[in-house]
Design a protein around this nucleic acid. Structure first.
Length: 432
RNA sequence: GCGGCCGUAGCUCAGCCUGGUUAGAGCACCCGGUUGUGGUCCGGGAUGUCGCCGGUUCAAAUCCGGUCGGUCGCCCCA
């Protein structure tokens, strides 16, 4: 077989989002953006690829994401560029670059963008995936932590999901806080080195706190008695965390304290949280976030505290499907997504086809969804297409109607139909 | 990077174990019954390199080897 006959396929780990599912997909993204904007988070768009150094410095050179998951390439000028593996670093970079931190604070932004990580794909994990998220920069007052978490929680619930919110504080880098705790933890891990799974022994030097994430039975047993960060926070971080919890309680946001929760990216400080749902299997995180008070400085900017989250659209949709099927409810629940065509024109003959195109265009321009046959199908076929389009009405145009300046308007749910003047069509459809 | 499972019509799959006439079903699609009326019903129709390459055999969708692809799990994360 010749090579040009081999079908081209979507790259491994990527997905096409096709109708009808694409309606729900768009609807969910819009719901997110609306929720975020109602809380004062303005939209921001940053480049899909960035200087590789941004992620190495921001996300952390030892992190899993940077060491083995990035799509890095060189451009014609020899620059090393990387498809963004996450959203926060780019947003913070843009804020610093354009000196938004010299304007009114806090800076509150939302994004909805594609992210890229080169991992082995599986259910709920793809090489190109879509995240919606918000970032709030310029204050470390605990009310903003509570606001960010509440906005994420209520969006997920508005979408129809029932996530569990895991909450923790991982302190900041100081001897009397996380730095000191890390030494204590490393000491503990060394004492139990022979009881840990081999992969986890390697983590002692690179990222000891990640040992809490281990799924190895042996390690889990050991970690059950490990010292936890919340017992080793400095006074300021302890107080900050207490206030965040207090504000969340005020707002009625239900959370589960998880002192073993650590996050995969190096820039996190203090508040850390994750929205999980057990039905997602091993990819149980719908999203997560946390505070990143040192990130701006790592990227060469002035100190700028910040907090944000990112939620995976694919995983939310996956969770919604599972939840609804297990509850026996309809998939569409919570969504208005679907075809937007209200009137489908059925035209018999060339002259009628031209008139149908003119009328459909006129309706569209006045804000009413309209469609028509373009394949010269017979009347029966066109009626079938009308039903398939999801339209409420079929507007039939034949010789009789043309001669009289009328259309036959058929209600496709009731089957009732009436002849009305073409000039009355728009008003008639609008009043239902 | 490692392991399991699976590749037959657009989709979901049967057939493969026990090789043998034109490779099937349901759904979807198209046409007709209804010369201008969809969603029901009835009748008809189109659609397959049986993933690919090679081997065994008189004969391979079926047996053997390889290869490619997909998917699920591990690690890690959204």
């Amino acid at each position: 077989m010749s090579a040009d006959r081999v079908p081209v396929r979507a790259p491994k780990g990527t997905n096409d989002i096709l109708p009808p599912g694409s309606f729900r997909w768009q609807e969910l993204v819009r719901l997110a953006q609306d929720s975020f904007e109602r809380a004062g988070y303005a939209p921001v768009e940053t480049p899909t690829f960035e200087d590789t150094a941004l992620f190495e410095r921001g996300v952390g050179e030892t992190s899993e994401v940077v060491t083995k998951q990035m799509y890095t390439f060189e451009d014609l000028g020899g620059r090393s560029l990387t498809l963004r593996p996450e959203g926060t670093a780019g947003v913070v970079r843009a804020v610093i670059e354009h000196s938004l931190d010299r304007g009114p604070l806090p800076i509150k932004l939302n994004y909805a963008s594609w992210m890229f990580r080169q991992e082995r794909p599986q259910k709920g994990r793809y090489r190109q995936f879509f995240q919606v998220g918000i970032e709030a920069m310029g204050t470390d007052h605990p009310t903003i932590d509570a606001e960010v978490i509440q906005v994420g929680d209520s969006f997920l619930r508005a979408a129809g999901a029932t996530p569990t919110l895991l909450l923790n504080s991982i302190g900041h880098l100081a001897d009397d806080c996380r730095t000191g705790y890390n030494r204590t933890l490393v000491g503990f891990l060394r004492d139990h080195e022979d009881e840990l799974a081999p992969e986890d022994v390697k983590r002692i030097d690179t990222n000891p706190m990640r040992t809490f994430d281990s799924k190895e039975e042996k390690t889990i047993v050991v970690m059950a008695s490990a010292p936890v960060i919340t017992d080793h926070l400095c006074d300021a971080c302890t107080e900050h965390f207490a206030q965040v919890k207090g504000y969340l309680d005020d707002l009625g946001v239900i959370y589960t304290l998880e002192p073993r929760l650590v996050r995969g990216l190096d820039y996190y400080t203090r508040t850390a949280f994750e929205f999980v749902w057990s039905g997602l299997g091993s990819q149980n995180a719908m999203g997560g976030g946390g505070r990143y008070d040192g990130l701006a400085e790592m990227l060469g900017g002035n100190p700028l505290p910040g907090i944000g989250f990112a939620l995976g659209v694919d995983r939310i949709l996956l969770a919604l499907n599972e939840e609804h099927s297990s509850r026996g409810t309809r998939e569409q629940e919570g969504f208005q997504g679907g075809p937007k065509v209200e009137v489908y024109f059925v035209a018999i003959g060339d002259e009628a086809a031209g008139e149908a195109l003119r009328l459909a265009t006129r309706l569209r321009l006045s804000g009413i969804g309209a469609d028509l046959d373009h394949a010269r199908r017979g009347m029966k076929g066109q009626m079938k297409d009308a039903a398939r389009s999801g339209a409420k009405y079929a507007a039939i145009l034949g010789d009789e109607e043309l001669a009289a300046g009328q259309v036959t308007l058929r209600d496709l749910t009731t089957g009732e139909q009436e002849r009305i003047s073409i000039t009355d069509l728009e008003a008639r459809v609008r009043t239902g």
